[in-house]
Every structure is written in C-alpha cells, then in structure tokens.
Design a protein around this nucleic acid. Sequence first.
DNA 1: TGAATAGATGAACGCATACTCATATATTAT
DNA 2: ATAATATATGAGTATGCGTTCATCTATTCA
Lengths: 130, 130
Amino acid sequence: MKAGGGKHTRNAEEYVCDVQCIHPDLVEELEKNIIDGDTASELSQIFRVMSDPSRLRIISLLSKGELCVCDIADALNMTQSAISHQLRVLRNTQLVKFRKEGRVAWYSLDDDHVLKLFTTGLDHVGHTEP
Amino acid sequence: MKAGGGKHTRNAEEYVCDVQCIHPDLVEELEKNIIDGDTASELSQIFRVMSDPSRLRIISLLSKGELCVCDIADALNMTQSAISHQLRVLRNTQLVKFRKEGRVAWYSLDDDHVLKLFTTGLDHVGHTEP
DNA sequence: TGAATAGATGAACGCATACTCATATATTAT
DNA sequence: ATAATATATGAGTATGCGTTCATCTATTCA
C-alpha cells in the first residue's frame, strides 16, 4: 500500500496487523483471485454502457423487439440526435446490432448477456420486468 | 420526437413512415414495456458503481471472502485513501457491507445479485472466474 | 433533378467522478 | 497521556461523458 496503512491477516480467532511485513501466502492467495487490470477495464466498459438511464430505457425497449431510431426517440421523448449518439455507444460495445432498410435503421439487442445483466439488475433493485 | 424525425411502424411486410401522425397502438405497446425514468435511474446506479475497474477488482477480491481496507489496498497496489473512497461508494449503494473490529474494518459483498452481475459480465467479455 | 426524410456525427457545454493530498477520528500500544 | 495505526473524509484537479445544436450523408418521392 502507498499510504496510511498496515497489513492484516486472519489468524484463528485473532487478527494480526503489521505494517512492514507482508504475508506472502495471503497476498498470493489474493492475487490469484484478482481479475487483472485489462479484464477489469474491459468488464467496466460493459457496465459503463449500462450505467446510463437513457441507454437502459433503450435496452428495455429493444428487449421487446426490433425498433427504428425514431420509434425509440418518440417512445422515450428524446431527440433523434441523442438517441443516435447513444445507439452508437451501444453499437460500438456490441450491445446492439442494426440493419439498414432503405433509410430506416432497425436496431435490436445483440446478445443475451445484455438481457441477463438487465434483468438481474432489475431484480436487484426489486423490480420485475413487465 | 423532437428533431429530424418521422415515425415508423411495421405493417405486414412494409414499413410506413409518417412524421405528424403517431400510431397510438405501437406507442402504447412500447410504453407498456419501457421502464420508467426513476427505475432506469435506480438501475443505472448499480451499473454505474460496477463500471469502474478499481471497484470491479475490489468486488473480485471480496467475492472470495471478507477483507480489510489495507489488504485490498495492498493487493490492488492502490492508496488506502483511494480504496476507502471507493468502499464508501460501494457501501452507499449496498453492494458491500462491513463490520468494525477494533480499528480494522472488514468488508464483504452484501448481495448475491452483485456476484451474479459480476460473473455474468465476465461471461460476456469471455472470461471465466478463476 | 430537386425536395423531403432517416439517421449519423463533430463541436461545445455542463456535470459527474476517480484519484491525490492533507487532515480528522477512533482504537490500540507504550 | 502520548504515539502509532486503521480508516474516513473534505477539497481540489483532471478526465470522461450526455445532451444540444448544427450540419452532413444517404435514400425515397415528386
């Protein structure tokens, strides 16, 4: 650690703290279980994308089926531009896919994981999907 | 919608677009399926908390058991202050809980949903937990 | 061909937030 | 009581991001 700290280990019923010594066994044990920084960053991106209310509502809509941009904009009462920007974010992170039909772009969820994350999250906040 | 837009509906095999008219059936259908703004905000908070690499690594560590602040700081090679700030965020959103034992604070995950979100996320990025 | 429309996108503004630094609080040891 | 330790926290700074506004491309219609 870099500031203000010591080091603790469980030792039967008592907790031993010491600043200078590091307990290699615990550290090693811990370090096996840490996801590395790259994985953490990669993972954080998915959650980051799902951490915006507008994007969640888009996902909520798309969980029911394919929709075009202006349907979404209308349903959420947001500008086409705002929706389009958000859809790009969702596209870039592979959470949604789309197909072009004339000048209409139809969007849909790309992955079941997204839906699972969404419903698990809803579960967590104590709501259930309609 | 507020800018640049029309309105589309699936109509058998053809898609009808019209700007001024709103198709009440589709809108109504959609609006039943939208999570409301409050729910979206509430849900976004959980994902927001899980959208930071440092917090994810903390969660990763705590998924293996109870740890004190300086254990975490040491394992992640971050300052005690930074960890403490992040733990407060995790505490305030009920993702972790803690107990005080003397001057040592032992933290652990508060909820199985957290772990489920974490592992589902890892699944999504194609990693599996060690 | 020219007008209208669906959507995409760059710039800019405002707000949120992760970390650092300094310091405060609470507990243990001497 | 005094010193040391474990953690918490406020202020400040830098970075990231969501939305708006203006504009651009591509497609359809007249």
